[in-house]
Nucleic acid binder design. Structure first.
Lengths: 158, 158
DNA sequence: TAAAAACCTTGTAGTCACTATATGGTCAAG
DNA sequence: CTTGACCATATAGTGACTACAAGGTTTTTA
């Protein structure tokens, strides 16, 4: 099958398939007389595997490692477990921070109702407050340094 | 103050500050005789504002728009509201899909306990199942196309 | 006073996983 | 014979940095 068909079957853009080949994730297939790539079932299987891992948001480096383990099925599967554990921890961490972020944005959004000039907008005031080093609805205090007299010519930092 | 001090106060890497200047997010400061950048309070304020928006995971393009609104405080703040709303919706969408992803990975992880060869690993079997077009613990069926006879020489696609 | 460390400058390339564009060859249908 | 869909390559762009190279300056230390 040609690259377009493979792309349709797997749901992977042909450009992306070529990209996978370029970075060594998918083995280069044989070519026809006209130079077109000719894929077989092995390629389809491998690409579907890659696509599934990507759907699970695994980085391509991890996918590469899993493919290697697939090619060497006698190795200990602890490597697989560790990889999935690490990835899961990563995803969970991201989830936590995203939840906190959503809460912050919701609070921020609640600062403004109706229409008025930007100068009176609660959201803007809130965002600017952070630049002043005050406590904001979002973060405790993002700028802790004393903003006293760091404007002197040079080098007397205290 | 010099770029290092500004970076320390705001918690932004000097390389990043120069990057912000390059892309027009932070105005270019005056230079000293030796060519060093000399920042004033206005720069600090602006950079802290940027940093705060970035902490809220806003894209720099959005930050740019907010900065423009800051510079034109008489504009209607509806633009601010819309921007925050859009961003919040984006974050909430990402949150949803990340939650689904975490669930999927947890299920996948549960497929393997103890150590054995990769060939017997439940995780690997699960991942490979997707490549076979079967229903997996993660997705309904990621490959729906009939995998019958698409291996014929060429172009008779049915 | 000299050397070393820390800082600054510019420019360029690398990251990740694509995505888009340019330019041209191949093939089937009308 | 032309239109359109498909394929090929190479290159550059995305976002938001990060790292490096190769040099100049300032501060600290011995």
């Amino acid at each position: 099958m040609r690259i377009g068909a493979l792309g349709q079957v797997t749901g992977v853009d042909p450009e992306t398939i070529r990209y996978y080949e370029r970075i060594g994730l998918l083995p280069a297939p044989t070519r026809r007389a006209n130079g077109y790539r000719a894929y077989g079932p092995a390629h389809l299987e491998r690409l579907a595997f890659i696509r599934h891992c990507r759907a699970l948001d695994m980085p391509l480096a991890d996918v590469q490692r899993l493919l290697h383990l697939l090619d060497h099925p006698l190795d200990d599967c602890q490597d697989v477990d560790r990889l999935i554990d690490t990835h899961l921890a990563h995803v969970q961490g991201k989830l936590q921070s995203l939840q906190a972020l959503a809460r912050q944005l919701e609070q921020l959004r609640g600062r403004c109702h109706g229409q008025h000039a930007t100068a009176e907008c609660g959201i803007m005031h809130e965002l600017v407050a952070a630049a002043q080093g005050e406590n904001c609805v979002c973060h405790g205090s993002s700028v802790q340094a004393p903003l006293k007299n760091m404007w002197r010519p040079e080098s007397q930092t205290g």
